[in-house]
Design a protein around this nucleic acid. Structure first.
Lengths: 160, 160
DNA sequence: GGCGATTATTATGCGCCTTAACAATCGGGG
DNA sequence: CCCCGATTGTTAAGGCGCATAATAATCGCC
């Protein structure tokens, strides 16, 4: 091992007896920690959005449609870094829930323009508030400054 | 709206035409960004571990067994914040791949003690190196200092 | 010796993502 | 003008990762 990184050092693991804490070789891995964080975020979402009948992925699509009425599915796929086939299924769910409708584009008959329904616009008010609460809970262990740093680092990390 | 938060403000979204960038109301949401980051981490893992025949979840279980020989499934479930039933399936995969073996515990016949096989120990050398490369790629947009901050913030966030 | 608690596993289902196949439309070159 | 490759969208099928519920075996204790 070339350099002794401060974190993520592996202890000798003394027999892994039930007594002490066990060695966590992945505790210093960003990718692993992100996976754990996403589990927690998912949990929080489920608790808060239990009454809304939407899933995390569906919610992200809905948020984009609300913020960009007339959006096309392809643009959503690009923004969410997901394949268009996946977007189609999620939009189906939103249409079935009566939150979104597909409208034909007169100048581009292949595409469908996505608009929120009136019911969708109404429900969004509550959802937006709930989303803020979800994020607050998710990051409740962080100070406001740390939360800002966290978001900034995530955005830099994701900036392909 | 009482106070103008610096991030995550929603623009009027002028017709969502194909010309300009679209409004991203979730760009300031930690939970949403973590989900995107996890997608990227998963992608990176698949690229790097394509030849090892293990999945991300299987790898995390394997890493724990390597670091803690004689570990019991329940301890893994607790450490990874998943249900024991899930661990059993993942261990099945590792056993089938010849990386891990289940051994009876003489003092606790309900439990099985997990040990890496010799082949598993050998393969782990390469996996450990590959994992470091995966994390390096995952965080390549960050400076070393930022990477350290990122890990520290994640750990604080997760510290239930 | 029996009975609730603990440990592990299998079976089943859902969410989310992928690739592959198909359909419809667009747009430009012959 | 028509055809054909490219674009856009959708459905179908599959895999991973998680959950809950049901089952089995063992443990500890009265």
């Amino acid at each position: 091992m070339p350099k002794p990184s401060p974190a993520a050092e592996m202890m000798p693991a003394p027999a892994a007896g039930k007594g002490g804490a066990l060695a966590s070789p992945l505790a210093g891995s960003p990718a692993f920690l992100v996976r754990l964080a996403q589990l927690r975020a998912f949990d929080e979402f489920h608790r808060q959005f239990a009454n809304f009948g939407v899933t995390p992925a569906g919610f992200s699509v809905f948020a984009l449609v609300i913020a960009n009425p007339g959006l096309r599915p392809g643009a959503i796929a690009e923004e969410l870094r997901v394949k268009p086939s996946n977007v189609a299924v999620l939009v189906n769910g939103l249409v079935a829930a009566g939150l979104v409708r597909r409208e034909p584009d007169p100048a581009e008959l292949r595409a469908s323009l996505l608009h929120p329904t009136r019911a969708g616009q109404t429900l969004w008010q509550d959802m937006e508030q709930t989303q803020r609460e979800t994020d607050a809970r998710f990051t409740e262990a962080l100070t406001p400054e740390e939360r800002g740093q966290f978001v900034a680092l995530l955005r830099k990390l994701l900036h392909r």
